[in-house]
């Protein structure tokens, strides 16, 4: 196999584990991680970037890296150590509901006067805060619904049909210009951001990397199919009201028609997706595999836990009058229309 001719650049490392992983991809050798993998902060920049880089081999790879490294046993062995640390931390730290229904019920009640990121952006978001938010969220939205497609061969019957139907909607219902990842790229263009895949990895903090890594982790492991389904349910259930606020934030800031449309579309689409995912995918999966109940609940709880951490990073930076980006300079390089 030859190296990828194009694709994202390998990012700069954020510590010994990510340095070993990135170095291995750059040089073609095995990752020299040593003891660092076993002691790295499970939510920290170093471990999360190493995981992110390992997972990207399954999506678009990196320019100059042999695509066959996706199945390099040495890389996969290190990845497994990092995944174990990440999963153990999540199981210890996230809320642990007894059942999928109990976990979802908590999400189905709308807080009055909430103070999450969508609330704050709707009330007082500045254009630069919207740009920071979109730049970091682009790590997911430019591959929106991709990690979830991996679960399809692991589902049957109602769960599979429901999941495939929602994914079809996420992928534009057969029309390239309506693929949700494309709608997000259009939003980014409205905000004067660079729509190149992987462009804002350097700007994104560990909290955003963890949000994306969770989906890849759940998507790539059949053993975690219940957690993937729970994760997807949590995303769809929380998306519609949050999207209404974010659409309002885009309108108020005069971000542009494509920026408004991305969130307007998600208000309606995810009000439907929520229903299909709860009644067909979650219920359908648990009807045939009831032993996955705790896994579905874990997927829901872990998603909320990491989303909250990402939100806290943004809000604490903004309250201090600072940028929420790891490298604010990344945004300054981009033209403003």
């Amino acid at each position: 196999m030859s190296d990828e001719p194009t694709g994202p650049m390998l990012p700069q490392d954020r510590g010994p584990v990510s340095a070993a992983m990135i170095g291995a991809l750059r040089d073609g050798g095995p990752p020299a991680v040593g003891e660092a993998a076993a002691t790295a902060d499970p939510y920290g920049d170093d471990l999360q970037l190493a995981l992110y880089v390992a997972y990207e081999l399954h999506y678009r790879g990196f320019a100059g890296v042999d695509p066959a490294r996706e199945w390099d046993p040495e890389l996969l062995r290190v990845r497994a150590v990092l995944e174990r640390r990440f999963l153990d931390a999540l199981r210890a730290d996230a809320t642990a509901h007894e059942s999928a229904t109990a976990a979802l019920d908590d999400l189905l009640v709308e807080p009055v006067g909430g103070d999450g990121v969508p609330h704050v952006l709707e009330r007082s978001g500045t254009r630069s805060q919207l740009r920071e938010y979109a730049a970091q969220r682009s790590l997911y939205h430019l591959k929106e619904a991709d990690p979830h497609a991996w679960v399809l061969p692991r589902l049957w019957g109602r769960a599979k049909a429901g999941m495939a139907a929602v994914e079809f909607d996420e992928f534009g219902g057969g029309r390239a210009e309506r693929v949700h990842a494309q709608l997000f790229a259009d939003l980014m263009a409205d905000l004067g951001l660079d729509t190149t895949y992987g462009r804002y990895v350097e700007a994104a903090g560990a909290e955003m990397l963890a949000v994306v890594n969770l989906m890849s982790l759940f998507g790539l492991h059949r053993a975690l199919r219940g957690a993937l389904v729970g994760h997807f349910a949590a995303v769809e259930v929380t998306s519609s009201p949050a999207s209404r606020r974010l659409a309002g934030a885009m309108r108020r800031a005069g971000a542009g028609p494509a920026a408004e449309f991305f969130y307007d579309e998600h208000v309606e689409a995810d009000a439907v997706h929520e229903q299909v995912v709860r009644h067909e995918v979650v219920d359908g999966l648990l009807a045939v595999e009831p032993h996955l109940e705790r896994d579905v609940a874990f997927g829901i709880d872990a998603t909320g836990f990491l989303d909250d951490r990402f939100g806290e990073r943004l809000l604490s930076a903004w309250q201090a009058g600072e940028s929420s980006l790891r490298r604010a300079i990344e945004l300054d390089l981009v033209r403003v229309p």
Binding site: L108, V109, E110, P111, V112, G113, G114, D115, A165, F168, D169, G173, S240, P241, R244, V267, E268, A269, A271, V272, E274, Q275, V276
Partner: peptide, 30 residues
């Protein structure tokens, strides 16, 4: 032309006739 649509029955939707999840219970918790 969505594969399935959610029609609002509570009349609270701001995107009527489509549901926008405004039917959800609300809680003052913060």
């Amino acid at each position: 032309d969505r594969f399935r649509v959610a029609l609002c029955t509570c009349r609270r939707s701001r995107r009527y006739p489509w549901c926008d999840t405004s039917h959800r219970r609300r809680r003052r918790d913060r």
